[in-house]
């Protein structure tokens, strides 16, 4: 395992200073479920670890008038127990619940899942579908970036040296909105997503879709939005025909690779199936009579 220097600052400002002044490659430690494995690899470079869990607010989730402010280091175990969040964002909570085992959820965080930027991360499509915003603090102040712009490639994010993901914010959805997330894995648990799909829909009182946001995961270098599927949904009631179109649009949008977890053909097909099924679940949650 690589040699490392460990810091556990008590404030964001201290964390930013340590990160900005780091002479070694700095690594932010939240849940550590990806980071500690990466650091244990042979030939892993020496690094400076900044544990952000002791910073006040980093593990909290609070509601305001506008919506939810989420501490990025809150563990999935704590997050998934929050009925107040689950009642508003059931799909996002499901995505967090799907990350690894109970043990992994005891440590893993949404912020860590996001910053690690795996193409197969479960919470990223769900955050994108819910229009989550990253609040980034750094030596030159605070900036905000939508989640879909935060992740820039496989394992890459837009944080500059000295910057830290300080919070995630989610606007309170308008009435008639609900989300859902589904992923495909060969077993029932523990695996990394072979494909994933998150859907957030707003239905009017007649069951017509007024707004849709669909993000798919593990089928491209980053999670991607599927505007073509959204266009098919908006203005329509949920029907078999609409769902078939949504599935096709998601499959068409995918540009997957073949690896030990699945083939191009399999991923392309299954992401369509998942998108269709997640759309149906979100619609039911939004009050559609199906």
């Amino acid at each position: 395992m690589a040699a490392l220097t460990y810091h556990a600052p008590n404030s964001i400002d201290d964390a930013i200073k340590i990160l900005a002044d780091a002479s070694l490659p700095p690594k932010v430690l939240s849940g550590g479920t990806d980071l500690i494995i990466q650091m244990q690899r042979p030939k892993a470079p020496e690094s400076l670890v900044v544990d952000v869990k002791k910073i006040p607010g980093m593990r909290d989730a609070e509601w305001s008038e506008d919506g939810l402010t989420l501490g990025p280091a809150m563990s999935c175990a704590e997050f998934t127990k929050r009925q107040d969040i689950k009642s508003i964002f059931p799909g996002l909570v499901e995505a967090a619940y799907l990350i690894g085992s109970t043990q992994v959820q005891g440590r893993a965080s949404l912020g860590g899942n996001l910053c690690n930027a795996s193409p197969a991360a479960d919470t990223i499509p769900a955050l994108i579908a819910n229009r989550a915003i990253c609040v980034i603090q750094g030596p030159s102040g605070t900036r905000v970036v939508p989640v879909e712009a935060f992740v820039t490639g496989v394992g890459k994010n837009c944080l500059e040296q000295g910057e830290l993901l300080a919070a995630l914010t989610l606007a309170r959805p308008e009435p008639g909105t609900a989300d859902a997330y589904l992923r495909f894995i060969p077993r029932t648990e523990m695996d990394i997503a072979v494909a994933g799909a998150a859907v957030s829909l707003t239905l009017d009182s007649r069951g017509v879709c007024r707004n849709a946001r669909i993000a798919i995961g593990a089928v491209a270098p980053t999670a991607i939005l599927v505007p073509a599927a959204e266009d098919i949904l908006v203005g329509e009631r949920i029907s078999d025909e609409v769902l078939a179109g949504v599935a096709q649009a998601a499959s068409d949008a995918a540009s997957p690779i073949s690896d030990r977890r699945g083939t191009v053909e399999f991923r392309r097909h299954v992401v369509g199936v998942l998108t269709k099924r997640a759309t149906l679940i979100a619609a039911e949650r939004a009050g559609a009579q199906l």
């Binding site: 460990y6 556990a8 430690l29 849940g31 550590g32 479920t33 500690i36 494995i37 670890v49 544990d51 869990k53 563990s75 175990a77 085992s101 109970t102 043990q103 992994v104 005891g106 440590r107």
Partner: peptide, 14 residues
């Protein structure tokens, strides 16, 4: 919290 102790640094136990 239930965790895997292989995914926790010893120093975090402080």
């Amino acid at each position: 919290a239930l965790v895997c102790s292989c995914l926790v640094l010893g120093v975090e136990a402080q």
